[in-house]
């Protein structure tokens, strides 16, 4: 092998360069062989040991789809409560944006936010309707 310091040729087994004395051999990197866990003899009455499945054999888990509640957001804007409805549309847009960018966790978060906005708009619509009927009936 050639010395990394001075470039002179040395024996393969030499530890130091014969010309400049620089260290030649790197300690060999410890290569841990990948081993399957050793099979164990189950104790009497214990469950038999099943080695875990190797990576690549099981199909990847499919993520559940993330709803954006855009339908309800449109209904909220048109029938119920315009400010909440516009916010719900904006949140639905965020869900689509995060899904398109591959940010599943962010999409779920935006989806939950959109869902709670839909419930708020339902509450606002019901609340206003009740107030209206009470006013009509002279209770106000």
């Amino acid at each position: 092998m050639f010395c990394p310091q001075c470039g002179s040729k040395n024996d393969e087994q030499s530890l130091h360069c014969s010309q400049c004395g620089a260290a030649l051999q790197q300690p060999p990197a410890v290569q841990a062989p990948v081993q399957a866990p050793p099979p164990q003899y189950p104790a009497p009455g214990a469950q038999p040991y099943y080695p875990p499945p190797q990576f690549g054999t099981a199909p990847p888990p499919t993520l559940p789809p993330v709803p954006n509640y855009l339908t309800q957001a449109i209904m909220a804007t048109i029938f119920c409560c315009i400010p909440v409805g516009i916010f719900a549309i904006i949140r639905a847009n965020e869900v689509n944006k995060k899904l398109a960018a591959g940010d599943y966790a962010g999409a779920v978060q935006a989806s939950n936010s959109a869902k709670s906005l839909c419930w708020w708009s339902v509450g606002a619509g019901i609340g206003f309707t009740i107030l209206y009927y009470m006013h009509q009936l002279g209770k106000f």
């Binding site: 789809p65 709803p67 855009l70 549309i89 847009n93 965020e94 869900v95 689509n96 899904l99 398109a100």
Partner: peptide, 25 residues
């Protein structure tokens, strides 16, 4: 939403279009 309860309806629309609809409103 009734037929396939947990699927994402309209989630594959490009985000710009949804915002454009909001702008239209």
């Amino acid at each position: 939403q009734w037929m396939r309860p947990n699927s994402g309806v309209f989630t594959r629309i490009r985000p710009g279009w949804v915002l454009a609809f909001g702008g239209l409103v």
